[in-house]
């Protein structure tokens, strides 16, 4: 199913977890930092930034995380396998033209950007930036989909 998506974000809710999807607004070089090396991924306008919250929780941190990446181009950090901090990572992010959810990877440890850790209920979903929007497949009837508008306003006084 294709969902129109412009500047707003798409929230896909399961019963206990969610995915938040946004389109990249302009091309940039995304740095991915691992323990061993730094990689730079070319990201194009219309590619997707996806945040997964496998245990659910507040949506606002996911909104901020998406903005940190797609607006401020903050590098992604990849934890080494079996890192003790992995269990405390409650929001994970992936960037690319097509992203596939999996519940079979350890969160925060996977540098391949086409994969993102999810809960079991949202596992096996493919999200593709297409036709000015995003294709979600398969779209189960018990997923709840909402559009979200989000804007950061800063006032200095």
């Amino acid at each position: 199913m294709n969902y129109a998506l412009d500047d707003e974000l798409l929230l896909i809710r399961g019963k206990q977890s969610f995915l938040l999807v946004a389109k990249v607004k302009s091309r940039f070089g995304l740095c991915i930092e691992t323990c061993e090396d730094e990689y730079c991924q070319g990201v194009e306008t219309g590619d997707l930034v996806v945040v997964s919250a496998p245990e659910g929780g507040a949506v606002e941190p996911a909104l901020m995380l998406i903005d940190l990446v797609r607006t401020f181009h903050i590098p992604l950090l990849v934890l080494p396998k079996n890192h003790p901090g992995s269990r405390r990572v409650s929001y994970v992010v992936s960037v690319g033209p097509e992203i596939f959810t999996s519940c079979s990877i350890q969160r925060g440890t996977h540098p391949d950007q086409h994969l993102i850790c999810s809960s079991g209920e949202l596992s096996g979903v493919t999200m593709t930036g297409k036709n000015g929007g995003v294709d979600i497949s398969p779209m189960h009837h018990d997923f709840k989909v909402q559009h979200i508008k989000f804007e950061v306003k800063t006032e200095f006084s």
């Binding site: 070089g29 740095c31 691992t34 061993e36 730079c40 070319g42 990201v43 194009e44 950007q113």
Partner: peptide, 30 residues
């Protein structure tokens, strides 16, 4: 998934001279 699955290619930027490991089809200088 073995860590060597992600293999960046070595690139050099023709504008600023930066050397980096790029992944994906359209590498961009970081």
């Amino acid at each position: 998934i073995p860590p060597d699955r992600v293999q960046g290619k070595d690139y050099r930027c023709n504008e600023c001279g930066e050397r980096f490991k790029g992944i994906g089809k359209k590498p961009i200088c970081p």
